[in-house]
């Protein structure tokens, strides 16, 4: 097990380094010059080179990448003297526009994105793992038809569309729930949940529909398998057989869930945009519109890092559950 863990961990670090290297090559040797954006117009050549030196973009993309990796582990300082800006480890870059490290920007937005993502993920798991096995149990019935039709529609539905429609119906027509804005959990837990209920349901329904579809088909596969036939032959009740089947459906669904959660923590971009919440996705979009390369690269790499960590955790959990994975 220790060997397996070490191998997975090493692979994750290598992948993360490889991505950041490619990103730096692509973004910092491209035509977009962050120093020029900050310098404004008119821009004196001396001032430009000063800014470049301060930002560290006077060096080649490869050297900048080395600086970035160093910053991740030990932090880094931009510029020297009174103007110097300190970026503590793990430094995901610096927004010279907002004079803040990208890490602290992400940190300030993370509660919002995490609230949306975790809540949405929980709702989707409940929806999927309730409706999927139920549909499988009453295969061919009304409920099954509803689940299959509904999940087809919801899987096809883009999240932003469902979000906008939900705002229109529940926010404006029925006036039931607030349609935008975020209230911190520490301020008022009730208002926090009340403002998030619509985003949670939107995300939960869309992802839950995919889980339900998957769980239903997986459940039917399991129920038709030999080992469950054997269990039935021992005289086990139908209910008990279903319970056994359900247990083996949970494993692949948990895998999907882990990856989805990591993806969503990287930025629930559409949901944040539709419900005007300023999470990590909004940070990235803001960075693009203000041409802030530091924010854009930092956020994208943070998202990639989350996915890799999420994959690592899923792998480790699976390694514990299933010994075959460890050897593979």
């Amino acid at each position: 097990m220790a060997w397996y863990l070490a191998r997975r961990l090493a692979a994750s670090v290598v992948v993360l380094l490889a991505i950041s290297f490619c990103v730096y090559l692509l973004f910092y040797s491209g035509p977009s010059d962050p120093a020029r954006v900050l310098c404004g117009k008119p821009c004196q050549p001396e001032r430009l080179s000063q800014i470049k030196q301060f930002m560290g973009t006077d060096k080649s993309a490869v050297v900048q990448w080395v600086d970035f990796v160093k910053g991740l582990f030990v932090g880094r300082t931009y510029g020297t003297g009174a103007e110097a800006a300190r970026c503590a480890a793990p430094c995901f870059g610096f927004s010279f526009d907002q004079r803040q490290s990208v890490t602290s920007l992400i940190w300030s937005r993370l509660p919002i994105t995490a609230s949306i993502a975790i809540g949405g993920a929980v709702v989707s798991l409940i929806v999927g793992m309730t409706l999927g096995p139920l549909a499988a149990r009453f295969r061919g019935g009304v409920l099954d038809g509803l689940v299959r039709g509904g999940s087809l529609l919801l899987v096809a539905m883009p999240a932003y569309l469902l979000g906008l429609l939900a705002i229109l119906v529940f926010g404006f027509q029925l006036n039931m729930v607030p349609v935008s804005g975020y209230v911190p959990l520490s301020e008022s837990p009730v208002d926090w949940a009340w403002h998030l209920i619509l985003p949670w349901c939107v995300l939960g329904l869309i992802n839950g529909a995919a889980y339900a579809r998957y769980a239903r088909n997986q459940m039917l596969d399991e129920l038709g398998s030999d080992y469950l036939l054997a269990e039935r032959a021992t005289g086990a009740s139908a209910r008990r057989v279903r319970r056994t089947a359900r247990r083996s459906v949970w494993v692949p669904v948990t895998t999907l869930f882990g990856i989805d959660l990591a993806l969503m923590l990287g930025g629930t971009i559409f949901t944040e945009k539709v419900f005007s919440m300023h999470g990590i996705g909004d940070l990235l979009l803001g960075g693009v519109s203000s041409h802030d390369l530091g924010i854009v690269v930092g956020t994208a790499l943070f998202g990639a890092a989350l996915i890799i960590v999420g994959n690592l955790i899923v792998d480790i959990v699976q390694g514990f559950i299933d010994p075959r994975v460890r050897r593979g």
Binding site: V15, S32, V288, L293, A300, L306, I307
Partner: peptide, 20 residues
């Protein structure tokens, strides 16, 4: 395998910044 679980959307958005 790696690209399969990649936050593609983030990078699609980020790329807009460096495309001339």
């Amino acid at each position: 395998d790696f690209m399969f679980g990649f936050p593609t959307l983030l990078f699609l958005i980020a790329l807009q910044l460096i495309v001339p």
